[in-house]
Structures are given as C-alpha cells and as structure tokens.
C-alpha cells in the first residue's frame, strides 16, 4: 500500500520545510554542467576547507570558495549564480594547488561565472573589456602618451599587433560574433544604462 509519509502535523511539516538544506529546486544538472565546463571533479569534495584557508579573498570578504563547491555538489544553482561573491575570486589557483582531492575549485568558479553570464549576471567591467577588444583587438588599448613614449624608445608608435595591423580586426570580430558576445555585451550595458 502506497501512502504519503508524514508526521500528521501540519505545523511540524512547515517547520521541516524551513530547514536550510531543504531546497526543492535543487538541480543535479548544475553539478554536471559545472564539471563539464570547468573540466574538474567537484563531486570529490569532502569539504575540508583547505581551499578557503588558502584563498586571498576569504579574509577580507564573505566569499567562501568551499561554500561554492558545496553548492555545486548539492545542485544549488540559483544560490550560487546569484551570489555577488562569485566575482571575488582572483583566480590565483592557490586552492587548486593545495586541494587534497585534486579538484580545481578555481575552475568551478570559472564554470559558474560562465553559467551566470547565460543568466545575464555579470559585472559591467567584464562587458566593457569585450567592447574594447571588439573595437581594437586589445583589452587595454594604446593611447597618445604611450605612443610618444614608444617613439622615444625607438619602438613603432603602435605595436605590431592589431594596432599596427587593423586588417586583422574583422577576423576577431567574426569570432566574437560567432558567440554573439558583442551583441550580448552591448545589450546588457544598454539595459543597465536605462
């Protein structure tokens, strides 16, 4: 005989539902996506905390890399992707070098950032870099003060990159357009400006 299993006490049922680990939108595919994009084995984590202990961002913020790995394992997609701490990782890879389970927590963060971007969650400075590279090929483009300095050093005023050879820029734009990156960056920055 199949029947619902409960305490027969609505008040107690509600209380149980309030427990922080009871999350009914847990998504197992979140873990799978993170592991695929990050090319690492998040599910091997036993929560020792070596990563957080090695992290230069942890002592000066609420960012806890261990928590993000746990969120990956539990499939807490929304909790992970909407937390602004996601963007405090400097990608120094100290956690990765010290992880006793051979996981790359840094790459878990990178994967989560990729997934957050698909939800239009991304700090503006990242989008501005896309616009700069689309325009000039450089994330940090040349300027006149620097051109004068280069000339003084006997270097060409513009380096032999896309700056001196702008004919290479359309190829770069094609790559970025293939992934609709410029389009999305423009749209998100425009929406922000409204």
């Amino acid at each position: 005989m199949a029947r619902e299993k409960n305490y027969g006490n609505p008040q107690l049922e509600n209380k149980l539902r309030d427990r922080y680990y009871y999350v009914d939108d847990t998504k197992p595919e979140f873990l799978a996506n993170v592991e695929k994009i990050g090319r690492t084995i998040a599910h091997m984590c036993y929560q020792c905390g070596t990563c957080t202990g090695s992290c230069p961002s942890a002592p000066r913020s609420s960012y806890r890399i261990r928590l993000f790995v746990r969120r990956a394992v539990l499939g807490l997609e929304e909790e992970a992707l909407t937390d602004p701490d996601l963007w405090l990782c400097t990608t120094c890879y100290s956690c990765t070098d010290r992880c006793p389970r051979d996981i790359a927590p840094t790459d878990i963060i990178m994967a989560m950032r990729n997934l957050a971007f698909k939800w239009d969650i991304i700090p503006r400075n990242f989008l501005q870099t896309v616009q700069l590279i689309y325009k000039s090929g450089h994330g940090v483009p040349n300027n006149d003060v620097n051109r004068a300095a280069r000339e003084r050093l006997g270097l060409p005023r513009d380096p032999p990159t896309t700056h001196a050879y702008p004919e290479f820029i359309p190829g770069i734009q094609k790559i970025l357009d293939h992934y609709k990156l410029k389009e999305n960056a423009d749209r998100m920055l425009a929406e922000e400006g409204k």
Partner: peptide
Amino acid sequence: KGASCCPAPGAFGSIDL
C-alpha cells in the same frame, strides 16, 4: 603581426571559456 589581447583570462574566461 596581427596578434590581439591574449584575451585576458579573468575577463574572457569568466564570460565564456
């Protein structure tokens, strides 16, 4: 000749690897 930004691993890698 014609090289671009590497592109910045933090910025670009975070958006779309």
